[in-house]
Nucleic acid binder design. Structure first.
Lengths: 222, 222, 222, 222
DNA sequence: GATGAATGAGCCTTCATTCAT
DNA sequence: AATGAATGAAGGCTCATTCAT
């Protein structure tokens, strides 16, 4: 009996591991396909093929295509939210924005398809847009605007333009990933390569320094 | 007899006018729906409903949903291409970029859905992406980079970052329209309102001035 | 006033002539297309194109595709029925069957598509099949069987096989036209050419002579 | 474990059997409907209904209506081709034609709809006509004509009429099935009944004997 | 847990038909 | 009489989803 119990325990553990593996494959495949085709444009069979499983297997993990989409969205959003909360709760330093944008870029580098999901959802005016706005964009804007007001914004960027300035940071970070295929087709290099992402990160840094000259220190200028 | 000829001519003209009206309605509706749902995500019946015609009527004007999509893309792209050609052929002036971006923003204001189409096509890595890149983005980058190299770029923006700088102009113009629903949900105003578009145009202007201080003159500063 | 009357009379006559011309074009086109595609398989636009008129024009002459089909069927059937009636009413002669088959072949030569219509209708078990059977095939069989019984049928063709013998005449006449495309593809000549039709007529003649030796006379044997 | 393996093997076999059953039902239903309505005239929903499955299920087995049509054609044609090849390779005997026609009639009796398919395809001048001609009719004619030339053909059937004589065998075999509905409507019995088919076979036999008197032996005459 | 078979709903497209001119 | 524009009703085919194994 105990052996049997052991056996079944071992078997159960193996099965659980296998299930976890399958689930991750499904989520990864979903993220990739949803990012390219959108919710209504993706076919579950395409996801299944990309995940290497049968179409029916998806339904052992998620009750519907929509639920799968929500899971992908949630998985991509959560770390960003956490990061932002950490920054918001932490002490304000002169270059908080630079640091935050750096971390965000780093996260997006690991999930390069997630940006597209957000853009797709925005453009489709989809049902998850309010959630994304509430959980992520609104706090982000609050953080940035808080920084900006407490800092000194250079003359030409008057007060009413500050939201556009905040949005700028989304454009150059998320937008870089969203537009990547177009840029790749235009320039002769892949914006999603390590090199390309690093360069965009440096660009954002330089942009910030040029926009807020008071942030410059000796270390930035070499 | 001349009356009869006149009659039938008039009748034919009236019919042609009606057809032109219907075709424009179809194109406008298509632009709007495609921009929200993408090519594969839109249902022709939704376009037909938005255009106020029967689903079958679409096929009297365009042979397929795809052909309709291409027509919308072409209609949105052509004026931009023309504008860019005019600027490229014309004399270089100090603030050519400002002027060009201004005109582009103005065109986009009239076709606020077109930007989304471009983003969707980019994210889907669709079959028309190469065309968009070749006809529009590549010349645009050539123009901007030509300006930048001839002008003086401030220190932090070193040479390898120039493509990112060029892309910045797409992000703040097209990106503004593409992300509009998300911004609307986040801020409490519509980025697509006349006011919102004007403000973004002013922001771009200010951004340019801050990035290229040598462009500043007395007129810009008040 | 009288002139005007004359004018309008002339005009009316011209219009009537034109209408008659159009109607014949429509019927001819219909016969050709129906014979190839069947009732449900033909598209009215194809008929219209073949007739050189607009699709809507058909409806000025016939209320529906079905009505057009009936008209074609009737037009092809009527002369055959008339011919058969003439033979049935006329005096019996030794080679009545030979003469009748000859006339039928002659009519079919002028309407080579009509045979296919009959075959299509038969194979589809269409709604006009009973009509065709009643008006044409039943009287035809009655005539042939009347001849056969009055004549002497050679030994191997016993009584119960007589219907098959009657059907044989349909097979070699109508069937020749119906199968023409297959025969053309198989042999290297067109069974619908004048030469091809004449040869089949001769074949039928020879067949009859071989089946009913007592019909032979000196004239047939050279 | 072996039981489990057995179980799953059994299960898989059962599933395969079920699939084979469904596929046969689909093919049978297709043959029946195509034979009546032709390729363009049949609705896949009608086939599905006749096969007792959902319309979408058809596409689990065949990628398109056209592919289904081709499969039906192939299934009907293959045995005939095989039979003919056997006869062509085998020794020539006096009554080869009689025997071949007998076997063909026997096969057609089992697939009474197939003849109509061939006729429909011929009349429509469809895209599969060349295939049918090349694989079946051409070899058949070659066989028959080979027999005829080696044998003695009676006087009235001169050389140039031999192709018509070969075609006669198609008319009386395939044509019997194709025209069956019309004959049924005309006579008062079903040509597709066992009795009807047997009688037509006997008729063909008698026909041959009457056309080629030298084939007669004592056995045939009683 | 995983899968092949099956299906109802829906999508793009075509068709026969109508109507204003 | 003739036609271009418009449409309701399918038609072929796909898709997300279910179920038995």
């Amino acid at each position: 009996m105990p052996e049997k119990s052991n056996e079944s325990e071992t078997a159960r553990a193996a099965q659980a591991e296998r299930a976890a593996f399958t689930e991750k494959a499904i989520l990864d495949a979903s993220e990739s396909v949803f990012a390219r085709r959108g919710l209504s444009g993706t076919r579950v069979r395409e996801i299944a093929a990309a995940a290497g499983v049968n179409g029916a297997t998806l339904y052992n993990y998620y009750p519907s295509k929509t639920a799968l989409y929500e899971a992908v969205l949630e998985r991509g959003l959560a770390p960003l939210v956490t990061t932002l909360e950490r920054f918001s709760a932490g002490p304000r330093e002169r270059e908080s924005i630079r640091a935050l944008v750096g971390e965000v870029m780093c996260h997006l580098a690991g999930h390069p398809d997630f940006s597209r999901l957000v853009y797709l959802e925005a453009m489709a005016e989809g049902p998850y847009l309010p959630t994304v706005a509430r959980k992520w964009v609104r706090p982000l804007f609050a953080f940035i605007l808080g920084e900006l007001k407490s800092g000194t914004v250079p003359e030409p960027l008057e007060e009413p333009l500050l939201p556009s300035l905040a949005a700028l940071f989304i454009h150059v970070s998320f937008g870089h990933f969203a537009l990547a295929p177009l840029l790749k087709e235009t320039l002769d290099e892949d914006p999603l390569s390590e090199e390309g992402i690093a360069r965009q990160a440096r660009f954002i840094d330089a942009l910030i320094l040029q926009l807020f000259p008071q942030l410059r220190s000796e270390g930035d200028e070499d």
